[in-house]
Design a protein around this nucleic acid. Structure first.
Length: 804
RNA sequence: GCCGGUGUGGCGGAAUUGGCAGACGCACCGCACUCAAAAUGCGGCGGAUUUUCCAUGCCGGUUCGAGUCCGGCCACCGGCACCA
C-alpha cells in the first residue's frame, strides 16, 4: 500500500526544497541561451490574491519550467506595483502610513504566491515604492524632461465649483457633482504631460516587428488612430485671417457648404468684435463647457450649435462665401479644432445641416444625399467639382492635394487620435516628480546625485481643499533652493501616476540591485527583449502602450539595446463567477484561492486553472470541475500501486506515449493547456485499462506533468526513486517514427456518409489505397449493385465511394 | 455607429485546418466493492418514429464531403466612440 496523496504536506516540502536550493533563480552566467518570461506584476491590494492572478502566472510558470528543462537560463521574476489609490485611501481611512499598508499587503501576496509553487526568482523582487527603485523612475522622467518630452500644460479637468476639487468623469452626473450636487465645469488646470504623441508613428510601426496576439495589435492601432488627409486653409471674408481645417476627404472640398469651429477655438475670441451675436456664442460656449465628457459621449449625440453671425469663410475652390458655426461636435483637441463641413458625404455634417437647414451639395455620385450622407469611397465618381469631375475618389484626393500644395493653401497631413499622457496626480502615494520651480530659471531638474527625491513623511494624506497634492502643504519639503542659481525655489508637489513604475519594471528585474544604473548594459543585452509577456487585455492601451513608449525612448537615447521591450505578448481570459458573471464582492461570487488550495491542493488548483477552458477565453469557475482535477491527481498518485519494473514501455502503449509527448510539448507552446492536460488524462486512463505502468512510462508522464503540477510530480519522482529532482531533468523527446500504430481504422463513406469502418495497414499511399481498398469485402458489400463513379481517399482517415 | 471576438450535448469544452462531430472533464444514470454510505473501479450518457434519419445560432451556396470555405442575416461578449 502506498501512502494517501497529501498535497498540503508534499507542497510545503517541495517549496522548501526549491527555495533552499535556489532552484529557480536565474543564473548569473551568460553561457546558456536565455529565456525571459514575464507576467504583469501584481498590485498588492488588501483583498489579497484573486483567482485571475494564478491563471496568468501558472501559464508562464509552465512555459518557464519547460524552458529550464530544455536547457535555457530562465528569468521568471516577480515584483510589486505598489503605488496607487486603494492603498492611499485605506491609509487615510485607518490612519496608517501607506508604506506600512503596502509592506503588509506585499508580505501577504508573497506568501499566497509561494503557496501555489510558482517558480519565480524571488531574489530579484522589485517594489515600485522602494526609493531604490523609484530613484530610477525619477531618473527616466528627467531624461524625458531633458528631451522636451515632459512638459507642463494647461489641461481641462472636471471641476466642482462647490467642493473646489477636480472630479473624474464618472463622478459627474447630469452636469452636477455626484457628492454635493454642485455645479461642475471644465476647468483648465496645469498638469505635467508626456509627449507620447511624438512616438505615435514609432509605436505603430513597432507593432509590425513583434509577435503580439492580433487583437492586442488591433486595439493599439485603433488607439493610436492614424489617419491620412490634408490641411486646408479657408480665408475669412473681409480679413486676412485664415481658418485651417483637417480633413480626410479633401476630394469633397467642392461640397464644403459651411464650416464648424470647436466652441473653444481661439478664433472666436479674436473675431468677437465682428461676431454680431457674441452674447449667444458666449452662452453656447458656457453650455458646452458645462458638459462633462460623459454627457458628450454617453447621453445624446443630438447636434447643437450656434452660427457666428457676421462671419463668413470662403471655399477656396468654389470661391463661394459659406457660413461659419460653432458646435461641440467638433473637438478642439483633434486636428485643428475646425472642420469644413461636407454634409453630402459625412454623417455628422449631414445631421447638423438637416437640423439647421444648411445646403447639401452632392460631389460624389452614387447615393441620395437628401436621404442620407453618402460616405462610400470605394467606387464613387466626382460631380459638381470643377476640375475633379469624373475622377474616382482616390484619384480626386491626389489631384486636389497636388492642387492645394501648388497654390499654397493646403498640404498633406497625417493625424493621430493618440493624446499626450496626463502625468500629474494630486495625490500622496506616488513618485514625487523630481523638478523644482525657480522664478528665475523656470523648471529645473533635481540633480542626479540628489535622486531619489523621497516622499516626505506627512500627518495627513488626504487631498487638500484646493485640489493640490497633500505634499503642497509641507512647507519644509516644498521650499528648497534652485539647483541652477541657488535662489529660492519650490518643489513640484504633484506625483506620478501609477503607470510610471510599471513602465520599466521589466528592465529592473534584469539587474535589480544595481545602484549605478537602472540596469547594466551587458545584462540588458543578454536578457532583452522579454521573450514572452502574458497579461490582461485591460492593459492593452494603458500599461502596454506606455511601457513600449518608455522603452522606445530609452532605446533612442541609447540606454537599452532593443527598440521593442516584448517579443511576444499573449493574453489570458477572465475567470468569471460560477454564475457566468464577473467576480465581485457585491455579486457574492468571488472564489478565494486560499480556500480552494486548502480543499484540493495547489497542484489541483493549478491544473484546474489550466484545464477549465481555452486559455484566452473568459470562463466561469466550477468548484465541481476543480474537484475533478483533484481526482485526476489522485489517479496519477495511485499509479504507484501498479508500477512495474522496466524502463521500457507499457505493453501496447508505445505509440500513445510518443503521441502524448508530442501533443503536450506542442500544446504548451500554443497555450492550449486544456488539450495538453486532456491528453495526459487519456494516457492515465490507458494505464488503468492496462492495469500496470512501467518505470519508464511513469518517468515520461511525470516529466510532462511537472510544469502544471510540480509538487506531486517531484514527490512521486522521488518516492519511485527516479533520480535527481525533476527541476534538474531534461524535457522528454518524441520519436517521429513511433507516432503511428501499425494499423489504422478508416471510415468508409458512400456519397460522403459514413457507412462502415475498416482496419488497414498504416502508411498506404493514396494510389494504393484508392486501388485496393474498394476491393475489400466490407466495402464491396456496401457498394453492391451500384455504379462506382468516383473514389476519394484520404490516407489514414477515410475512403469515400461516390456511387450513381 | 465602427473595430474585434464568440455561438457545438444538461455544463466547461475537443475536432491535424475541408475528411469518422462531441476527445477530456463536470453533472447525471447503472453495475461492482460495502451491513450501509462515502471513496474507488468498471460501464453508459446529443435527439428521435433507431437496419434509418436529424443535429455545430439562422437562411442560401461551393464540394465526393462543410462545425471548418463563400454570400446574406441573428444573438451575445469586449473595446472605441461626434477623431472630421
Amino acid at each position: 500500500m502506498i501512502t494517501p496523496y497529501n498535497p498540503a504536506a508534499i507542497e510545503k516540502k517541495w517549496q522548501k526544497i526549491w527555495a533552499d536550493a535556489h532552484a529557480f533563480e536565474a543564473e548569473k552566467s551568460h553561457d546558456k541561451p536565455k529565456f525571459y518570461g514575464l507576467i504583469e506584476f501584481p498590485y498588492p491590494s488588501g483583498a489579497g490574491l484573486h483567482v485571475g492572478h494564478p491563471r496568468s502566472n501558472t501559464a508562464l510558470d509552465i512555459i518557464c519550467r519547460k524552458r529550464r528543462m530544455e536547457g535555457y537560463n530562465v528569468l521568471y521574476p516577480i515584483g510589486w506595483d505598489a503605488f496607487g489609490l486603494p492603498t492611499e485611501n485605506y491609509a487615510i481611512k485607518n490612519h496608517v502610513h501607506p508604506a506600512k499598508v503596502t509592506q503588509k499587503n506585499i508580505d501577504h501576496f508573497r506568501e499566497q504566491l509561494k503557496k501555489i509553487g510558482f517558480s519565480f526568482d524571488y531574489s530579484r523582487e522589485v517594489n515600485t515604492t522602494d526609493p531604490k527603485y523609484y530613484k530610477w523612475t525619477q531618473w527616466i522622467f528627467l531624461r524625458l524632461f531633458e528631451r522636451g518630452l515632459a512638459y507642463k500644460a494647461e489641461m481641462p479637468v472636471n471641476w466642482c465649483t462647490s467642493c473646489k476639487c477636480g472630479l473624474a468623469n464618472e463622478e459627474v452626473v447630469g452636469g452636477v457633482c455626484e457628492r454635493c450636487g454642485g455645479e461642475v465645469v471644465r476647468k483648465v488646470k496645469s498638469q505635467w504631460m508626456l509627449k507620447i504623441t511624438d512616438y505615435a508613428q514609432k509605436l505603430l510601426d513597432g507593432l509590425d516587428e513583434v509577435d503580439f496576439i492580433e487583437k492586442v495589435k488591433v486595439q493599439q492601432r485603433n488607439w493610436i488612430g492614424r489617419s491620412e488627409g490634408a490641411e486646408v486653409d479657408f480665408a475669412v471674408a473681409g480679413s486676412d485671417r485664415k481658418i485651417r481645417v483637417y480633413t480626410t476627404r479633401p476630394d469633397t472640398l467642392f461640397g464644403a457648404t459651411y464650416m464648424v469651429l470647436a466652441p473653444e477655438h481661439p478664433l472666436l475670441d479674436e473675431m468677437k468684435d465682428r461676431i454680431e451675436n457674441w452674447d449667444e456664442v458666449l452662452a453656447y460656449r458656457a453650455q458646452a463647457a458645462r458638459k462633462s465628457d460623459f454627457e458628450r459621449t454617453e447621453l445624446q449625440k443630438d447636434k447643437t450649435g450656434v452660427e457666428l453671425k457676421g462671419l463668413k469663410a470662403v471655399n477656396p475652390v468654389t470661391g463661394r462665401e459659406i457660413p461659419v458655426w460653432a458646435s461641440d461636435y467638433v473637438l478642439v483637441t483633434y486636428g485643428t479644432g475646425a472642420i469644413m463641413a461636407v454634409p453630402a458625404h459625412d454623417t455628422r455634417d449631414w445631421e447638423f445641416a438637416k437640423k439647421f437647414g444648411l445646403p447639401i451639395v452632392e460631389v460624389v455620385a452614387g447615393g441620395n444625399v437628401q436621404e442620407a450622407a453618402y460616405t462610400d469611397v470605394a467606387d464613387g465618381v466626382l460631380v459638381n467639382s470643377g476640375f475633379l469631375n469624373g475622377l474616382r475618389v482616390a484619384q480626386a484626393k491626389q489631384t486636389i492635394i497636388d492642387f492645394l500644395e501648388e497654390k499654397g493653401i493646403g498640404s498633406r497631413k497625417v493625424n493621430f487620435k493618440l493624446r499626450d499622457w496626463v502625468f500629474s496626480r494630486q495625490r500622496y502615494w506616488g513618485e514625487p516628480i523630481p523638478l523644482v520651480h525657480c522664478d528665475k530659471c523656470g523648471w529645473v531638474p533635481v540633480p542626479e546625485s540628489e535622486l531619489p527625491v523621497l516622499l516626505p513623511e506627512v500627518d495627513n494624506y488626504e487631498p487638500t481643499d484646493s485640489g493640490e497634492s497633500p505634499l503642497s502643504v509641507i512647507d519644509s519639503w516644498v521650499n528648497t533652493t534652485c539647483p541652477h542659481c541657488g535662489g529660492p525655489a519650490r518643489r513640484e508637489t504633484d506625483t506620478m501616476p501609477q503607470w510610471a513604475g510599471s513602465s520599466w519594471y521589466f528592465l529592473r528585474y534584469i539587474d535589480p540591485h544595481n545602484d549605478d544604473a537602472f540596469a547594466a548594459m551587458d545584462e540588458l543585452k543578454y536578457w532583452l527583449p522579454v521573450d514572452w509577456y502574458n497579461g490582461g487585455m485591460e492593459h492593452t492601451t494603458l500599461h502596454l502602450l506606455y511601457s513600449r513608449f518608455w522603452h522606445r525612448f530609452l532605446y533612442d537615447e541609447g540606454y537599452v539595446p532593443t527598440p521593442e521591450p516584448y517579443r511576444k505578448r499573449t493574453s489570458h481570459g477572465m475567470i468569471l463567477g460560477a454564475n457566468g458573471e464577473k467576480m465581485s464582492k457585491s455579486r457574492g461570487n468571488v472564489i478565494n484561492p486560499d480556500d480552494t488550495i486548502d480543499e484540493i491542493g495547489a497542484d489541483a488548483f493549478r491544473l484546474y486553472e489550466m484545464f477549465m477552458g481555452a486559455f484566452d477565453q473568459a470562463i466561469p469557475w466550477s468548484t465541481e470541475g476543480a474537484r475533478g482535477c483533484r481526482r485526476f491527481l489522485e489517479r496519477v498518485w495511485r499509479l504507484q500501486e501498479m508500477l512495474s519494473d522496466g524502463e521500457g514501455h507499457s505493453k501496447g502503449l508505445e505509440t500513445l506515449i510518443h503521441q502524448t509527448i508530442k501533443k503536450v510539448s506542442e500544446d504548451y507552446e500554443k497555450m492550449k493547456f486544456n488539450t495538453a492536460i486532456a491528453q495526459m488524462m487519456t494516457l492515465v486512463n490507458e494505464f488503468y485499462a492496462a492495469g500496470r505502468i512501467t518505470r519508464g512510462d511513469l518517468r515520461t508522464l511525470l516529466l510532462l506533468l511537472d510544469p502544471v503540477a510540480p509538487h506531486i510530480a517531484e514527490e512521486m519522482w522521488q518516492q519511485c526513486g527516479l533520480g535527481e529532482p525533476i527541476y534538474r531533468q531534461q524535457w522528454p523527446k518524441w520519436d517521429e517514427d513511433k507516432l503511428q500504430e501499425a494499423t489504422v481504422e478508416i471510415a468508409v463513406q458512400i456519397n460522403g456518409k459514413v457507412r462502415g469502418r475498416v482496419t488497414v495497414p498504416a502508411g498506404m499511399s493514396r494510389e494504393q489505397a484508392e486501388r485496393e481498398l474498394p476491393q475489400l469485402p466490407e466495402v464491396q458489400r456496401l457498394i453492391a449493385g451500384k455504379t462506382v463513379k468516383k473514389i476519394v481517399c484520404v490516407p489514414g482517415r477515410l475512403l469515400n465511394v461516390v456511387v450513381g
